[in-house]
């Protein structure tokens, strides 16, 4: 039990950190929430601000374009984070084997992640270029396609192409976290499972995956939050086009704020995006919690 004095000391010691936390997260959050219930606009002259209740939310949620954008964002998030998870874990398992040049490969694999998103986006735009892109050239020479295509100029393929670029950039993060976790799996566990008759796949599913589920969940949650508010890579690669086929929810936040200068309405979009991310995270947490309960002990 802490004494009265110690209790006060505890708060004094925590105060600076709490103050910083409040300054950088709580206040902006509260401010955004407040804005989302008003008709505030960005303008040079002070304008009267009115509290308009849920009007912004009603407007956002009844806008069919925004609904579509939400589904698009969900699609982007699920597919890209899903692929990053599978690819990341697979690569981590490979890098956890013993072979010559393992250390070098481990170092190289992080490179895509180390590249700035803008650079990555520009590089992939070149790869997808309809006239002299590497993808066209590769697929053509392999005989898979007979004509060069405009991969990100076609609404049918643009989103998946952006996802590919995003996966390439971000799977190393998942791979690194998974690799670090894999290195803590006790050798005896796999040995015991092997003696009990479990093959490699069964060993992976029953022993390895549950063991690394905790750290893996952390990185997947992180990636989900990032993916759901995706903006930069799409902005550079397609600008939301063609025909809005890559226009995600964040574009609406951006549009409302900076094109239409409606910061009240923009805030309501932002709150919606954050809210849906939160739902996804809770979902993750409940799924993995069941798998790891008592695990990694």
């Amino acid at each position: 039990m802490l004494g009265r004095r110690q209790k006060r000391e505890k708060w004094i010691l925590l105060a600076p950190a709490l103050a910083v936390l409040a300054l950088i997260t709580l206040i902006p959050l509260a401010n955004t929430l407040w804005l989302s219930f008003t008709d505030t606009r960005i303008s040079a002259l002070p304008e009267p601000v009115h509290f308009i209740g849920l009007e912004n939310y009603v407007y956002a949620l009844t806008d069919p374009d925004f609904q579509e954008a939400l589904f698009r964002t969900l699609y982007f998030t699920i597919v890209s984070v899903g692929l990053e998870g599978v690819l990341g874990v697979a690569v981590a398992v490979l890098l956890n084997q013993e072979f010559r040049g393992r250390t070098l490969l481990r170092a190289l694999i992080i490179l895509p992640w180390a590249v700035p998103t803008i650079v990555n986006a520009v590089a992939w735009r070149l790869i997808y270029h309809p006239d002299y892109g590497a993808l066209n050239s590769l697929l053509f020479q392999l005989g898979i396609i007979s004509d060069y295509r405009s991969w990100i100029g076609d609404p049918a393929t643009a989103m998946n192409m952006v996802i590919l670029a995003d996966v390439w950039k971000n799977f190393p993060l998942v791979a690194y976290v998974a690799l670090a976790a894999l290195q803590t799996v006790p050798e005896d566990l796999s040995k015991a499972a092997a003696i009990e008759g479990a093959g490699p796949w069964k060993r992976f599913c029953s022993i390895t995956l549950p063991w690394i589920a905790g750290p893996l969940m952390v990185v997947m949650v992180l990636r989900t939050i990032e993916a759901f508010r995706v903006f930069d890579i799409i902005y550079v690669m397609t600008g939301g086009g063609p025909a809005d086929s890559t226009k995600t929810a964040s574009f609406y936040v951006y549009q409302e704020y900076f094109n239409y200068l409606r910061s009240g309405s923009g805030a309501s979009y932002a709150v919606l995006v954050a809210g849906i991310s939160a739902v996804l995270i809770v979902f993750y947490y409940s799924v993995t919690k069941r798998q790891t309960a008592g695990g990694a002990a």
Partner: peptide, 21 residues
């Protein structure tokens, strides 16, 4: 033969119990 086919069982110093089960 593979360990699984040898008709043996092993008890480890670390017990090697599966923590998630």
């Amino acid at each position: 033969d593979e360990p699984a086919d040898r008709d043996i069982a092993m008890v480890f110093q670390s017990y090697a119990l599966f923590p998630n089960m």
